[in-house]
């Protein structure tokens, strides 16, 4: 049951996207998200969503996995779209008591749905094609300038690395503890909500005790390996922007400029601010 959790799942590969620098991927993803929400008419929306599909294709990751990540949020998509459907202004096309559907409502609903789905897809591309260590490494280097404001960038990145490293270990441990408690007659599946919550206590207590023991050991092991914070630390992998990053940057810049032009010269389908 716990095996299904796929946090930060990474699928090794040799695609264009796998070869990109994590920093560039994070930067472009950020812009992508901003531009998805800047689309004001169908032309720019189509440009963005088609380019998302193009990126998915380039990642060479099985479409089934993308489908899975969309499935996880489909309820949210339907819910927010439905809400927006009845929230439009203008001439009602269809009305039943206080519920009315207008043209602007339909437009908003479509925009919301496409935007959320694109957002989830493009974000999964990042985690699917970037190893967790590369990701934290990229974040560390991108946030480096923040250390001017005394933000402990290295420490944050180290915490993320260790957390990612221990997720599978602790999941496995949770499974073991659950089985051990089941063997002693613990019941996790029946009873009302409160009973089920209470049944988790005999799992959480040993899990926490063991996590602290592991933390103690890890600290000792890290000290033994001369860890003394980020100062004077070098990295084996040196991140370097390559032709892949420049090509991606160039292509996406063209797309982004296209979206801006569409927004400026074509009539807006959505009211501004949506």
């Amino acid at each position: 049951m716990l095996k299904e959790i796929t946090l930060g799942q990474y699928f090794p590969g040799k695609s264009f996207l796998h070869k990109m620098d994590p920093r560039m991927k994070i930067i472009l993803l950020t812009f992508y998200i901003v531009f998805i929400f800047l689309t004001k008419n169908y032309v720019s929306l189509v440009i963005m969503s088609v380019s998302v599909l193009g990126v998915l294709f380039l990642s060479k990751v099985s479409p089934r996995l993308y489908f899975k990540s969309v499935k996880a949020i489909i309820f949210i998509v339907i819910f927010t779209s439905a809400l927006n459907l009845f929230y439009g202004t203008g001439e009602p096309l269809w009305q039943w008591k206080f519920l009315k559907i207008t043209e602007s409502g339909i437009n908003t609903a479509i925009f919301i749905a496409v935007r959320i789905i694109s957002l989830v897809l493009i974000s999964s591309v990042l985690t699917y094609t970037t190893s967790p260590t590369d990701l934290t490494d990229g974040i560390e280097r991108l946030l480096k300038p923040l250390s001017v404001f005394h933000i402990q960038v290295h420490e944050i990145a180290m915490m993320m690395t260790i957390a990612l490293r221990f997720i599978p270990t602790l999941l496995e441990e949770t499974d073991k503890i659950m089985n051990a408690q089941k063997a002693r007659g613990a019941d996790f599946e029946s009873g009302n909500f409160m009973n089920r919550i209470k049944a988790l206590i005999p799992i959480l207590v040993p899990l926490f005790v063991s996590a602290f023991r592991r933390a103690f050991d890890l600290a000792m092991a890290m000290e033994s390996r001369c860890y003394h914070g980020g100062e004077g630390r070098t990295r084996m992998k040196v991140l370097k922007y390559t032709k892949y990053d420049y090509i991606a940057l160039a292509v996406l810049t063209v797309i982004f400029v296209g979206v801006i032009i569409c927004n400026l010269y074509l009539p807006a389908t959505l009211r501004s601010g949506m």
């Binding site: 190893s131 967790p132 260590t133 690395t161 260790i162 990612l164 490293r165 270990t169 023991r213 592991r214 050991d217 890890l218 092991a221 890290m222 390996r225 001369c226 860890y227 003394h228 004077g232 630390r233 070098t234 990295r235 084996m236 992998k237 040196v238």
Partner: peptide
């Protein structure tokens, strides 16, 4: 306990952890 001594999620990056702390050239 081998589980509690490994820092990184990839074998070679974990092995690199010590030398990285020593400030050695990549």
């Amino acid at each position: 306990n081998p589980d509690n001594q490994l820092v990184a999620s990839i074998v070679e990056e974990d092995v690199a952890f010590g030398p990285e702390n020593l400030g050695i050239e990549p």
